[in-house]
Computed example of a mutant assay.
Amino acid sequence: MVAFPLPDNAVEAGYRVIGFDSVGSTNIEAMKAAMAGNAGKIWYAALQQTEGRGRRGRAWESPYGNLAASLMIVPDAPSNSLAGLGFVAGVALNTALTRLMPAAAIRSGLDGADGVSDGGRARIALKWPNDVLADGAKLAGILLEAQKRPDGRTAIVIGIGVNVVAAPQGLPYPATSLADLGAPLDAPSVFEALAESWVECYQMWNNGSGTNRIIHRWRDNAAGIGAEVAVQRGDGVLRGIFETIDDAGHLIVRDDEGHRIAITAGDVHFGTTATLR
Rank of each mutant, 00 (worst) to 15 (best):
K41G: 01
D114L: 14
M101D: 12
G152W: 11
S79Q: 09
A36P: 06
V91P: 02
L110R: 05
S62E: 11
L82S: 09
P150F: 12
M31V: 07
V164F: 11
G136W: 14
N66Q: 02
Q147L: 13
T26S: 02
A140G: 03
T95D: 15
L133E: 14
N94Y: 12
N163T: 05
R121I: 13
N80P: 01
V157K: 00
S117M: 15
G161C: 08
D111C: 09
G136L: 12
V116T: 13
G109A: 09
F20H: 13
V164R: 03
A137C: 14
L71G: 01
S25R: 02
L143Y: 03
Y64P: 01
A46Y: 02
E145Y: 08
Q48V: 00
K127F: 11
G37E: 13
G109Y: 10
D151R: 02
T154G: 05
A166D: 12
A140K: 02
G52Y: 03
M72S: 01
P63A: 05
V116S: 10
D118L: 13
L97K: 05
V132C: 09
L126E: 11
I124P: 04
M31A: 06
R56K: 10
I28T: 13
D111N: 09
D21Y: 12
L93G: 02
M35T: 06
A105L: 15
T50P: 12
S79K: 04
Q49V: 12
A113M: 15
S81W: 07
A140N: 05
E51C: 06
W43T: 00
M31H: 03
K127H: 14
G90E: 10
L139D: 10
T50C: 10
A96L: 05
L93V: 03
R121M: 12
P63N: 08
G120C: 14
G54E: 09
L126H: 13
R149F: 11
R121D: 08
S81I: 02
I156T: 00
A113D: 15
S79T: 10
R153I: 02
S70D: 01
N27V: 01
D76Y: 13
L82I: 15
N80K: 07
K32H: 15
V132M: 15
W43P: 00
V116E: 14
T26N: 01
N163L: 09
S108E: 09
R121Y: 09
K41P: 04
A113V: 09
A33W: 11
M31R: 08
S25V: 04
